[in-house]
Simulated assay, not measured.
Amino acid sequence: MNILKGFLPALWSFVSFLPFFLLLLALGIVKAVLIGPVASVIIFVGNSSVIIGMWPAHFIWTYYCVIKTKRLGLALKLFLLVVLPVPLLLLPPLIMLGSLLVGIGYGFIAPLIATFEAVGENVVNKFYHCFADGCAGTVKGACTLVVDFTDFCFYSYFSYMDDLCEKVPVGDKPMDVKLTKLPSCLLVSLLAIIVDVPMISIVALCKCPFMLVKGWHRLFQDLIGREGPFLETACVPFAGLAIMLWPLAVIGAVIAAFLSSFILGLYGGVVVHQEKSLCMGLAYIVSVISIFDEYTNDLLYLKEGSFLPSQA
């Protein structure tokens, strides 16, 4: 009987808020469809124009600073001069792709969130703000993103590269690599990319259903029980929005795992150089997959440890 007394009011609270949430969601989607493309075009065209226009200056200045710096040893400097064209050539298309994705995501999510924020307790004239918020603000935010990116390309990047050219403090040695270790470092990094990237991606894909279900379970539990972030009445509409957008968060986590797998794989070359052992680098290739699996298990409150081998 006590269970029914607690469950029925919670169920009624959930059912009564559902039409209100659906109306806000529909209004937010309409604004996202109308405003989203404008914001996406602003971010994509603005950032793409800046990176393409500044790319020659970035290319020349990067090479100049690498050649001039005293912080890098001769071997490392020669290695960087050889491999730098690859990331520098990939930079514009990657920035353009990232700008497109950011523009689409920001253009869709910003009006949606602004619509729900308009019904907050401290908002006056909620009816007006439900329609107005997220329109001009989203376009202005897109312009701000382009301005910030422009400032980084025009000022911050050159400032960071100038720091590279500063004199080495007395007593510090330039950063360098041993030429004899360079082939083994490159070999391990290449093998790690081939092995770790697909394996870590597979682990992330296998864990994403657990993340989806556990996240939804917790959100529904907090919503119905009015606990956690949904304790206040004003936060209830955001519960439905969080439930709707949770799959996007899961997809983002999988993409982040895929991108981070490249960094984890390339770090194998650093392990070889630091430990001065090819075997340690090969062991790292195997163990990093187990470490990632164990970390995701802890994050999702699954079984501790990992069934994958922790060392070669």
Rank of each mutant, 00 (worst) to 15 (best):
Y160K: 10
I67P: 06
V271H: 02
K181Y: 05
A10N: 12
D163L: 12
L302I: 01
M280N: 12
G120M: 05
L241N: 08
D162W: 11
Y106V: 13
L78I: 04
L278M: 13
G105C: 07
V50K: 08
A110C: 11
V30A: 11
I285K: 03
W55Y: 07
V41G: 03
F230D: 01
G134F: 01
P198I: 07
G120S: 13
V33M: 11
S184L: 09
Y301D: 12
A242V: 10
G141Y: 01
T296M: 08
T144E: 11
A204F: 00
K68P: 09
D148T: 15
D172T: 12
G103F: 11
T62N: 06
L11C: 03
Y106R: 07
L11E: 08
L25N: 00
V38W: 01
G120K: 13
L81D: 06
Y106N: 02
I224S: 04
F220Y: 13
L89G: 05
V102L: 15
V139F: 06
L179C: 04
L248I: 13
L76T: 00
G171D: 04
V197K: 00
A249T: 13
S13R: 14
I255E: 08
M199F: 07
S189H: 02
G252L: 01
N47I: 13
G137D: 10
V177I: 15
K31G: 13
M175E: 15
L72A: 03
M161I: 04
R226V: 06
I263D: 02
L97Y: 07
S260Q: 05
Y284F: 00
A312S: 13
T144I: 12
F14S: 09
T115N: 09
V123E: 15
F220K: 15
V271L: 03
A75N: 09
V146Y: 05
F292C: 09
I291C: 06
L282I: 10
M211F: 06
I202M: 14
D222L: 03
V86W: 12
F59S: 02
K207S: 00
F152E: 08
Y301H: 14
V270E: 01
K5T: 05
P111T: 00
T144R: 13
L4Y: 11
F131P: 00
L212S: 01
L101P: 00
P85Y: 10
V102C: 06
E275P: 02
I95C: 07
W216Q: 06
A249R: 07
M211R: 11
A32I: 06
G228R: 09
W55R: 08
A204Y: 00
A75S: 03
C153G: 04
K178A: 10
K70R: 11
A142C: 14
S184P: 03
L97N: 06
I194P: 01
I109Y: 12
N122H: 13
F131E: 00
L112M: 14
W246P: 06
G225S: 14
G225E: 10
L282V: 03
C135S: 14
N2W: 09
C130F: 11
V50W: 02
A204G: 04
P169E: 07
I104R: 00
F21Y: 15
L259Q: 08
S40P: 05
L84I: 08
P92M: 07
L248D: 01
M1S: 15
G225I: 05
F127E: 12
K5S: 09
F20Y: 15
L72H: 01
V30K: 10
T150Q: 08
T233I: 14
L266P: 02
A32L: 02
S159Y: 05
L219T: 11
L245C: 08
T69P: 05
